[in-house]
Design a protein around this nucleic acid. Structure first.
Lengths: 120, 120
DNA sequence: GTAATCAGTATCACAGAGTATACCAACTAC
DNA sequence: GTAGTTGGTATACTCTGTGATACTGATTAC
């Protein structure tokens, strides 16, 4: 097998991987994307759907993701102002990653709960 | 459609997602796993294959991942001591996630380079 | 009146993730 | 000798991601 080719692809792949990690890195971006893709639109709604997140983090991440065109924020300035978030088509390209990670998490839980406890 | 069911699954999925993020979170774990799965075995080899990583971070992450049974470290105490890292079957369960992320990174690059530059 | 909801913002604070740099002991190559 | 490789450790430092808490102004509900 062509060694050189393998090496070249490796470098490319590491870079692609690092790019992805850069964009969706951190504790909250994927859960937020997931929540919005699941149909949650309102700020408090999203907040409630993600255990552990604080108002501050949600606000910050939403802002960043809006700048990166991952989500769209719409304000309806009716009597009680209404704000809605939706995912963009670009955002939906994370679908496979999120699904793979949810699967892994579920398998991992099985794996952990099946294993007898190990003393170190 | 059954609202209640959807809600329950959502909560479960968020948790699974968060678990996964917890295990492979940070800047380096996935690149390291990827590198080792690609056949890199030696410390310096892995180090060179991941642009930007420092000796210290690699050392720390490898140690942690060894504790978590994601990789196996073998020492061959011949004249020049030889150390080899390999991925465990458990580690390979990240395969789908990593592939999905590499794909995304590549598409993202296309997307970025195709877009005309936007002034803010 | 009081409380609650919505969509956030403002501060403060901190652990720990990540960086930079130097160094070690053993060995090889020249 | 000197330089280079391997497999790391040690030290010091930065910095930012994250958390905790409180608060705002508008509106609705009782």
């Amino acid at each position: 097998m062509a060694e050189a080719t393998i090496k070249r692809n490796q470098a490319e792949e590491v870079k692609a991987l690092q790019d992805t990690i850069y964009v969706i890195g951190g504790k909250w971006k994927l859960p937020i994307i997931n929540s919005i893709c699941n149909g949650n639109k309102r700020f408090r709604e999203i907040e409630r759907s993600i255990p552990g997140i604080t108002t501050r983090m949600l606000s910050r991440e939403l802002k960043e993701m809006e700048m990166n065109k991952l989500i769209k924020r719409t304000v309806y300035p009716d009597s009680p102002v209404l704000v809605e978030y939706e995912s963009t088509p670009y955002c939906k390209t994370f679908g496979n990653i999120i699904l793979a990670m949810i699967d892994w998490g579920k398998e991992h839980k099985k794996y952990i709960t099946e294993q007898p406890e190990q003393a170190s």
